[in-house]
Protein backbone atom coordinates (compact mmCIF):
# COMPACT_ATOMS: atom_id res chain seq x y z
CA UNK A 1 0.00 0.00 0.00
CA UNK A 2 1.51 3.33 -0.97
CA UNK A 3 1.15 6.27 1.35
CA UNK A 4 -0.24 9.43 -0.13
CA UNK A 5 2.32 12.27 0.15
CA UNK A 6 1.70 14.66 3.01
CA UNK A 7 0.58 18.09 2.07
CA UNK A 8 2.79 20.81 3.49
CA UNK A 9 1.43 24.24 4.38
CA UNK A 10 2.07 26.89 1.70
CA UNK A 11 5.74 27.79 1.55
CA UNK A 12 6.40 31.30 2.81
CA UNK A 13 7.73 33.71 0.18
CA UNK A 14 11.25 35.04 0.71
CA UNK A 15 11.13 38.39 2.40
CA UNK A 16 11.51 41.35 -0.01
CA UNK A 17 13.90 42.85 2.53
CA UNK A 18 16.28 39.91 2.33
CA UNK A 19 16.30 40.12 -1.49
CA UNK A 20 16.89 43.86 -1.51
CA UNK A 21 19.65 43.54 1.07
CA UNK A 22 21.45 40.77 -0.88
CA UNK A 23 21.32 42.76 -4.14
CA UNK A 24 22.43 45.89 -2.31
CA UNK A 25 25.47 44.12 -0.84
CA UNK A 26 26.57 42.73 -4.23
CA UNK A 27 26.24 46.16 -5.86
CA UNK A 28 28.11 47.83 -2.99
CA UNK A 29 31.01 45.35 -3.24
CA UNK A 30 31.32 45.87 -7.01
CA UNK A 31 31.24 49.66 -6.61
CA UNK A 32 33.94 49.45 -3.94
CA UNK A 33 36.17 47.27 -6.09
CA UNK A 34 35.82 49.72 -9.00
CA UNK A 35 36.61 52.74 -6.85
CA UNK A 36 39.83 51.28 -5.44
CA UNK A 37 40.85 50.24 -8.95
CA UNK A 38 40.88 46.49 -8.38
CA UNK A 39 41.03 44.24 -11.43
CA UNK A 40 41.97 40.57 -11.79
CA UNK A 41 44.01 41.15 -14.94
CA UNK A 42 46.08 43.74 -13.11
CA UNK A 43 46.59 41.36 -10.20
CA UNK A 44 47.83 38.55 -12.45
CA UNK A 45 50.10 40.96 -14.35
CA UNK A 46 51.64 42.22 -11.11
CA UNK A 47 52.20 38.72 -9.76
CA UNK A 48 53.96 37.68 -12.95
CA UNK A 49 56.43 40.55 -12.86
CA UNK A 50 59.79 39.89 -11.26
CA UNK A 51 59.66 41.04 -7.67
CA UNK A 52 62.64 41.55 -5.36
CA UNK A 53 60.52 40.91 -2.28
CA UNK A 54 59.31 37.56 -3.58
CA UNK A 55 62.81 36.70 -4.78
CA UNK A 56 63.99 37.18 -1.22
CA UNK A 57 62.02 34.01 -0.45
CA UNK A 58 64.49 32.01 -2.52
CA UNK A 59 67.43 33.33 -0.58
CA UNK A 60 66.10 33.24 2.98
CA UNK A 61 68.84 34.11 5.41
CA UNK A 62 68.72 31.24 7.91
CA UNK A 63 71.51 32.83 9.85
CA UNK A 64 69.40 35.89 10.56
CA UNK A 65 66.92 33.75 12.42
CA UNK A 66 69.47 33.15 15.16
CA UNK A 67 71.71 36.20 14.97
CA UNK A 68 72.50 37.96 18.23
CA UNK A 69 70.45 41.07 17.44
CA UNK A 70 67.44 39.13 16.23
CA UNK A 71 67.53 36.97 19.32
CA UNK A 72 67.49 40.08 21.43
CA UNK A 73 64.59 41.52 19.42
CA UNK A 74 62.62 38.29 19.89
CA UNK A 75 63.32 38.35 23.58
CA UNK A 76 62.13 41.93 23.75
CA UNK A 77 58.94 40.99 21.92
CA UNK A 78 58.27 38.15 24.33
CA UNK A 79 59.00 40.34 27.33
CA UNK A 80 56.67 43.04 26.03
CA UNK A 81 53.91 40.50 25.42
CA UNK A 82 54.33 38.88 28.84
CA UNK A 83 54.51 42.16 30.76
CA UNK A 84 51.71 43.83 28.78
CA UNK A 85 49.45 40.81 29.28
CA UNK A 86 50.25 40.40 32.99
CA UNK A 87 49.78 44.06 33.84
CA UNK A 88 46.64 44.30 31.70
CA UNK A 89 45.22 41.12 33.23
CA UNK A 90 45.91 42.31 36.77
CA UNK A 91 43.88 45.51 36.41
CA UNK A 92 41.22 43.82 34.26
CA UNK A 93 39.69 41.60 36.93
CA UNK A 94 38.65 44.41 39.31
CA UNK A 95 37.63 46.70 36.44
CA UNK A 96 35.50 43.95 34.90
CA UNK A 97 33.86 43.31 38.29
CA UNK A 98 33.20 47.00 38.89
CA UNK A 99 31.69 47.48 35.45
CA UNK A 100 28.93 44.90 35.94
CA UNK A 101 25.75 44.93 37.98
CA UNK A 102 26.90 42.00 40.10
CA UNK A 103 30.05 43.74 41.20
CA UNK A 104 28.96 47.35 41.39
CA UNK A 105 25.58 48.46 42.72
CA UNK A 106 26.13 52.08 41.62
CA UNK A 107 24.72 52.77 38.17
CA UNK A 108 26.58 55.92 37.16
CA UNK A 109 30.15 54.76 37.98
CA UNK A 110 29.33 51.48 36.28
CA UNK A 111 28.25 53.20 33.07
CA UNK A 112 31.28 55.53 33.15
CA UNK A 113 33.65 52.59 33.56
CA UNK A 114 32.03 50.68 30.70
CA UNK A 115 32.13 53.72 28.42
CA UNK A 116 35.79 54.35 29.27
CA UNK A 117 36.61 50.77 28.40
CA UNK A 118 34.66 50.99 25.14
CA UNK A 119 36.69 54.05 24.14
CA UNK A 120 39.97 52.29 24.98
CA UNK A 121 38.87 49.31 22.92
CA UNK A 122 37.79 51.46 19.96
CA UNK A 123 41.40 52.66 19.52
CA UNK A 124 43.44 50.01 17.64
CA UNK A 125 46.69 48.82 19.22
CA UNK A 126 48.81 50.33 16.45
CA UNK A 127 47.33 53.76 17.12
CA UNK A 128 47.97 53.34 20.86
CA UNK A 129 51.60 52.51 20.06
CA UNK A 130 51.87 55.55 17.76
CA UNK A 131 50.45 57.81 20.47
CA UNK A 132 52.84 56.47 23.12
CA UNK A 133 55.83 56.77 20.77
CA UNK A 134 54.92 60.44 20.48
CA UNK A 135 54.56 60.66 24.25
CA UNK A 136 57.54 58.71 25.62
CA UNK A 137 59.79 58.25 22.58
CA UNK A 138 60.69 55.10 20.61
CA UNK A 139 61.63 51.81 22.23
CA UNK A 140 59.99 49.00 24.14
CA UNK A 141 58.21 51.26 26.66
CA UNK A 142 55.57 52.70 24.27
CA UNK A 143 54.97 49.18 22.92
CA UNK A 144 54.50 47.88 26.44
CA UNK A 145 52.06 50.67 27.30
CA UNK A 146 50.11 50.05 24.09
CA UNK A 147 49.84 46.33 24.85
CA UNK A 148 48.77 47.11 28.43
CA UNK A 149 45.85 49.28 27.33
CA UNK A 150 44.90 46.93 24.54
CA UNK A 151 44.97 43.90 26.92
CA UNK A 152 42.88 45.72 29.47
CA UNK A 153 40.24 46.57 26.87
CA UNK A 154 40.05 43.01 25.54
CA UNK A 155 40.05 41.16 28.86
CA UNK A 156 37.63 43.52 30.58
CA UNK A 157 35.15 43.25 27.73
CA UNK A 158 35.22 39.44 27.58
CA UNK A 159 35.20 38.99 31.35
CA UNK A 160 32.37 41.48 31.86
CA UNK A 161 30.25 39.62 29.32
CA UNK A 162 30.91 36.37 31.20
CA UNK A 163 29.97 38.04 34.49
CA UNK A 164 26.57 38.94 33.10
CA UNK A 165 25.69 35.25 32.84
CA UNK A 166 26.85 33.80 36.17
CA UNK A 167 24.78 31.88 38.71
CA UNK A 168 23.25 34.34 41.20
CA UNK A 169 22.57 31.67 43.84
CA UNK A 170 26.00 31.74 45.54
CA UNK A 171 25.83 35.54 45.63
CA UNK A 172 22.59 35.38 47.60
CA UNK A 173 24.14 32.78 49.90
CA UNK A 174 27.19 34.95 50.56
CA UNK A 175 25.03 37.99 51.30
CA UNK A 176 22.83 35.94 53.62
CA UNK A 177 25.89 34.77 55.55
CA UNK A 178 26.87 38.33 56.42
CA UNK A 179 29.79 38.62 54.00
CA UNK A 180 30.91 42.08 52.89
CA UNK A 181 30.57 43.05 49.24
CA UNK A 182 34.24 42.41 48.43
CA UNK A 183 34.20 39.11 50.32
CA UNK A 184 31.12 38.12 48.33
CA UNK A 185 32.88 38.95 45.04
CA UNK A 186 35.94 36.97 46.04
CA UNK A 187 34.14 33.84 47.27
CA UNK A 188 30.92 33.68 45.22
CA UNK A 189 31.80 35.40 41.93
CA UNK A 190 35.52 35.02 41.19
CA UNK A 191 35.56 31.18 41.40
CA UNK A 192 32.75 31.11 38.85
CA UNK A 193 34.60 33.20 36.26
CA UNK A 194 38.21 32.20 36.97
CA UNK A 195 38.48 29.52 34.24
CA UNK A 196 36.98 31.81 31.59
CA UNK A 197 39.12 34.72 32.75
CA UNK A 198 42.33 32.65 32.59
CA UNK A 199 41.40 31.56 29.11
CA UNK A 200 40.89 35.20 28.03
CA UNK A 201 44.28 36.14 29.46
CA UNK A 202 45.99 33.42 27.42
CA UNK A 203 44.08 34.44 24.31
CA UNK A 204 45.14 38.03 24.92
CA UNK A 205 48.76 36.87 25.17
CA UNK A 206 48.45 35.37 21.67
CA UNK A 207 47.03 38.65 20.38
CA UNK A 208 49.83 40.63 22.02
CA UNK A 209 52.53 38.43 20.56
CA UNK A 210 51.14 38.95 17.06
CA UNK A 211 50.55 42.65 17.63
CA UNK A 212 54.18 43.15 18.64
CA UNK A 213 55.26 42.38 15.08
CA UNK A 214 53.33 45.41 13.87
CA UNK A 215 54.03 47.71 16.82
CA UNK A 216 57.70 47.92 15.82
CA UNK A 217 56.70 49.54 12.54
CA UNK A 218 55.83 52.72 14.42
CA UNK A 219 58.97 52.47 16.54
CA UNK A 220 57.49 50.71 19.54
CA UNK A 221 60.23 48.11 19.97
CA UNK A 222 60.45 44.35 19.60
CA UNK A 223 60.80 42.18 16.53
CA UNK A 224 58.71 44.64 14.49
CA UNK A 225 61.41 47.27 14.71
CA UNK A 226 63.97 44.78 13.36
CA UNK A 227 61.57 43.79 10.55
CA UNK A 228 61.13 47.44 9.69
CA UNK A 229 64.90 47.90 9.61
CA UNK A 230 65.40 45.18 6.96
CA UNK A 231 62.38 46.37 5.02
CA UNK A 232 63.82 49.87 4.72
CA UNK A 233 67.20 48.46 3.62
CA UNK A 234 65.52 46.20 1.08
CA UNK A 235 67.27 43.22 2.65
CA UNK A 236 64.50 40.77 1.76
CA UNK A 237 66.33 37.55 2.50
CA UNK A 238 66.94 38.55 6.10
CA UNK A 239 63.41 39.92 6.39
CA UNK A 240 61.94 36.57 5.35
CA UNK A 241 64.22 34.78 7.77
CA UNK A 242 62.80 36.83 10.61
CA UNK A 243 59.23 36.45 9.40
CA UNK A 244 59.64 32.67 9.27
CA UNK A 245 61.08 32.60 12.78
CA UNK A 246 58.27 34.79 14.06
CA UNK A 247 55.73 32.56 12.36
CA UNK A 248 57.17 29.51 14.10
CA UNK A 249 57.12 31.19 17.50
CA UNK A 250 53.51 32.28 17.05
CA UNK A 251 52.41 28.83 15.92
CA UNK A 252 54.05 27.14 18.89
CA UNK A 253 52.64 29.63 21.41
CA UNK A 254 49.14 29.36 19.92
CA UNK A 255 49.28 25.59 19.90
CA UNK A 256 50.23 25.56 23.58
CA UNK A 257 47.70 28.23 24.48
CA UNK A 258 44.82 26.50 22.70
CA UNK A 259 45.61 23.25 24.49
CA UNK A 260 45.72 24.92 27.89
CA UNK A 261 42.55 26.90 27.23
CA UNK A 262 40.68 23.78 26.19
CA UNK A 263 41.48 22.24 29.57
CA UNK A 264 40.39 25.36 31.43
CA UNK A 265 36.86 25.73 30.12
Amino acid sequence: MSESPLRLPPKPKPSPWAIALSIGMVVFTVVCARTVGFSFSGLIEDLGRSNPVAQGLLEISWGEMFSERSRRAFLETLQMAVLGTTAGAAVSLPIALWSTEVGNPYRIPRILLRSFNNVVRAIPDLLWAGLFVLGVGIGALPGLLALFFFSMAVIVKLTADTLDGIDMGPIEAAKASGASHTQMLRTAVVPQILPAYSSYVLYDFELNLRASAVLGLVGAGGIGQRLDFFRNRGDWGKLWGLVLMFFLVVVVVEWLSVRIRRRLV
Binding site: G169, A174, S177, G178, Q183, A188
Partner: peptide, 27 residues
Protein backbone atom coordinates in the same frame (compact mmCIF):
# COMPACT_ATOMS: atom_id res chain seq x y z
CA UNK B 1 23.60 35.27 63.33
CA UNK B 2 21.12 33.83 60.82
CA UNK B 3 22.08 30.87 58.64
CA UNK B 4 20.19 30.25 55.41
CA UNK B 5 19.51 27.14 53.34
CA UNK B 6 18.19 27.36 49.78
CA UNK B 7 16.03 25.32 47.44
CA UNK B 8 18.72 25.36 44.73
CA UNK B 9 21.55 24.82 47.28
CA UNK B 10 23.34 27.97 45.99
CA UNK B 11 26.77 26.38 46.20
CA UNK B 12 29.75 27.57 44.19
CA UNK B 13 30.10 24.52 41.94
CA UNK B 14 33.65 25.15 40.86
CA UNK B 15 35.18 25.19 44.29
CA UNK B 16 35.58 22.62 47.04
CA UNK B 17 33.01 21.59 49.63
CA UNK B 18 35.26 23.05 52.35
CA UNK B 19 35.51 26.43 50.62
CA UNK B 20 31.74 26.50 50.28
CA UNK B 21 31.30 25.85 53.99
CA UNK B 22 33.95 28.44 54.88
CA UNK B 23 31.65 31.00 53.28
CA UNK B 24 29.75 30.72 56.56
CA UNK B 25 32.82 32.08 58.39
CA UNK B 26 33.27 35.19 56.23
CA UNK B 27 31.73 37.51 58.81
Amino acid sequence: EVGMIFQGFNLVDRTTVLNNVLMGRLH
